[in-house]
Design a protein around this nucleic acid. Structure first.
Lengths: 193, 193
DNA sequence: CGCTGGTATGCAATATATTGCATAAGCACA
DNA sequence: TGTGCTTATGCAATATATTGCATACCAGCG
């Protein structure tokens, strides 16, 4: 019962169609909450049936019609109730660590390559986050309550990327030693960083 | 297709029953990979059917019989193949951020309380991790390839907890300002930290 | 003797998520 | 004119995960 709440929260901002929500979940919100359009449409149907949102058909020329959903008083009440409930820490599923745990038995090169790929990914992410921060939150001291939540989300992202980048670098060094046990590495065909 | 790989990796260490695996997934491995015993038994059946593991019934007196599973050559090959495949970064689902995003519209106190609860949780986690580190990896310089993976998992956990703790503290300060806009807070019935 | 808790495996129902496909209109490009 | 992209919503099948329950034996406690 969590995607539904994420949708309701997004609708607090303004009424949106499933398509709008899906796009949002692909961008900013999607950094820490992934959802496909199928999931979103499904949840919208359920929320509408439960009376938490109200969908209004909007006829459009030169484009498919949209169904724009707004949160209802009942939806707001549901959200209020949910906020009072306890949130369990998210259960991580870090495949990369599973591969790491297989280290003695599988290709060290493959695992190394994976960590390198991840390092690049997180570096790019960090750059993106910092661009958003510079563009939208240049003065974090003076923010509305509403924006403070978004700001803190971004801050979590930035701190997380920093620590992940540090971990990747450490991991590369630690795994790398396995390849050259205690002497200088011989030249290799593929050069890395 | 990821829990199955986590099981195979665990079986690399030694043959285990579903019950053994479930316990392991409740402890160390479970810090970054949650799985219930039902899931594990189900996956074991599938893996056995696919020929990746082989189950052997072990008769026991004074206890229910166990079925001990071992990884097969076919399972090892499957694992080798999987390691070569790309791992996507995990898709996070951080409910706490969803609540945070609702800030202007819901109870600030409730959100604050949630962050405080989380802060406590992560502090406890960090203590646990550091105890394991001190107990099992006092000398990280000299570790077998096998243990290096486990060590790096633990390191990731520690770095992650550090940054999450820092974020929680920052979040408490940022949200807290909403309660006393620019003057000293009046005394409250419930005292915090 | 009954209660609780640990060991051990499993089914069934439901909830959640992913993958693939379908439809349908307009726009840009070659 | 045909191809592919964007907008927009949706179904169906499968995969994955959670919740609740069932079974069965033993050990320890009061």
């Amino acid at each position: 019962m969590a995607l539904s709440h994420a949708i309701l929260v997004s609708l607090l901002d303004r009424p949106q169609s499933g398509y709008d929500l899906a796009k949002r979940f692909d961008q900013t919100v999607g950094y820490f909450w992934k959802a496909s359009h199928q999931q979103i449409y499904l949840e919208l149907h359920k929320l509408a049936e439960a009376g938490s949102v109200h969908g209004e058909k909007v006829e459009q020329e030169s484009r498919p019609n949209r169904i724009v959903y707004a949160i209802t008083p009942h939806g707001r009440a549901a959200l209020d109730g949910w906020v009072e409930e306890r949130t369990e820490p998210p259960s991580v599923k870090e495949e990369l660590l599973v591969k790491l745990f297989a280290l003695g038995s599988v290709s060290t090169e493959a695992v190394l390559a994976e960590v390198e790929r991840r390092l690049e990914f997180h570096r790019r992410r960090l750059v993106e986050y910092e661009a958003v921060m510079a563009g939208h939150y240049p003065d974090p001291e003076r923010l509305s309550a509403r924006k403070r939540g978004l700001y803190l989300g971004l801050r979590m992202g930035i701190l997380f990327e920093h620590s992940t980048i540090a971990w990747c670098e450490e991991a590369l060094a630690t795994i790398g030693e396995l390849k050259r046990p205690r002497q200088v590495a011989p030249p290799r065909k593929a050069r890395r960083g």
